[in-house]
């Protein structure tokens, strides 16, 4: 049984989508963390993380996503989650992290939320 974490990057839009599948836990989250950091190194501060393929996620996986969000936000960007995954949704709700890490139905909606956030930020700055 595959408990590895698999990552794939989709760059068909201006906001890249990181497809995550497998288990995101204490043994595998370093791989996800490194992928998120590599986006920042490359100057990409907005990213959609699609969690449809995630089988299980523990607090380490959750922490890695929050850490990624923090780094994106430090650079005036953001991180949005997409995909249908009741397990991830339940963890976000139970912990309260759904207030900052919303799970959008699809990549397009998640990307739109990031664009909206950026526009709001720009508007706030000009005002």
């Amino acid at each position: 049984m595959d408990t590895d974490l698999n990552l794939a990057i989709n760059r068909t839009s201006d906001i890249p989508v990181l497809d995550v599948s497998g288990d995101v836990d204490e043994f595998t989250c370093a791989k996800l963390r490194e992928a998120l950091r590599s986006f920042i190194r490359e100057g990409e501060f907005r990213i959609v993380v699609n969690v449809s393929g995630v089988k299980f996620m523990d607090s380490s996986g959750l922490g890695t996503l929050v850490g990624g969000l923090r780094r994106m936000m430090e650079n005036n960007g953001g991180l949005a989650l997409s995909g249908t995954n009741s397990q991830v949704e339940r963890i976000l709700t139970v912990t309260g992290l759904d207030r900052i890490l919303k799970l959008h139905n699809d990549d397009y909606t998640a990307a739109c939320s990031l664009r909206t956030q950026e526009e709001e930020r720009k508007t706030a700055v000009t005002q």
């Binding site: 836990d25 204490e26 043994f27 989250c29 370093a30 963390r33 380490s60 959750l62 922490g63 850490g67």
Partner: peptide, 15 residues
């Protein structure tokens, strides 16, 4: 230790 870093994560990667 409790939330963010995975056991074994390298220093500086977490909060």
């Amino acid at each position: 230790d409790m939330l963010i870093s995975a056991p074994g994560a390298s220093a500086g990667d977490g909060w």
